[in-house]
Design a binder for these strands. Structure first.
Lengths: 128, 128
DNA sequence: CAGCATCCTCGAGGATACTG
DNA sequence: CAGTATCCTCGAGGATGCTG
């Protein structure tokens, strides 16, 4: 996989590889939800589990592991009992917050219209 | 259910339902790729297939069908032979373009760093 | 509390072939 | 050219139980 078909005149962007690559990482709903949830500050595992609510413990573990690996989230374990672990966005992760929030806001602003379109999409879809 | 966004003061956003819902639709990589590809103007089925390149014909069909149902993409079939069908973003779909592009640009700007972090994520991930 | 490990299901998605 | 139909695989992801 490589270049996209260069279209005449249009401001073409090299979206082939990088976007796909990154999307495979942060493109899944859990990652985006977690990032959005962490934007306010550090949270513990349990807090995240409650905040995202709907995510399984396994998925939260995996998602966090990936995000930490990618350097989007920092994990801090406090060696005490009971164990406490906090997750927070790194600088890199924070640069993603505005995009995630924009997406979230778009979703909230338009999900009704989308639902409406989906129900009877023979009337006037797409024309707000 | 026209939820307002209390983004100022209380840094808590009602992201539970709507975001998840919309993410399930446009959150998959194919939808985002297709939307991004269509931003320059109408494209025919075959052009899209070539432009996205990596997408299977089946997935393109399904993705387009969903996007049309959601009112993000308009389908125009010209009754002629050989058949010609063009897809283009609706008004609603166009409002999503800036976000998609922002995501694409973020991806291209940071995928190297992410890859670096993933390889040896004990060095300087995130930017501590 | 935080988090691996295991089993199992279910549907996203690719390959292929056919049609209008 | 623009799909539709069918089969089949593979891995995302939930449920459950155990450990540090």
């Amino acid at each position: 996989m490589a270049k996209v078909t260069p279209k005449s005149g249009g401001p073409r962007i090299r979206e082939g590889g990088a976007v796909r690559e990154v999307m495979d990482r942060i493109g899944d709903k859990w990652s985006l939800l977690v990032i959005g949830t962490l934007r306010a500050g550090p949270l513990r595992f349990g807090e995240l589990e409650a905040a995202v609510a709907g995510i399984s413990q396994r998925m939260l573990t995996l998602t966090l592991k990936h995000l930490v690996e990618d350097g989007l989230v920092a994990r801090t374990a406090y060696a005490e009992v009971p164990p406490r672990v906090e997750y927070e966005l790194t600088e890199l992760g924070r640069t993603l917050v505005p995009l995630v929030m924009a997406l979230a806001e778009w979703a909230m602003a338009n999900h009704e219209q989308i639902n409406a379109n989906r129900s009877g999409h023979a009337s006037g879809e797409g024309r707000p």
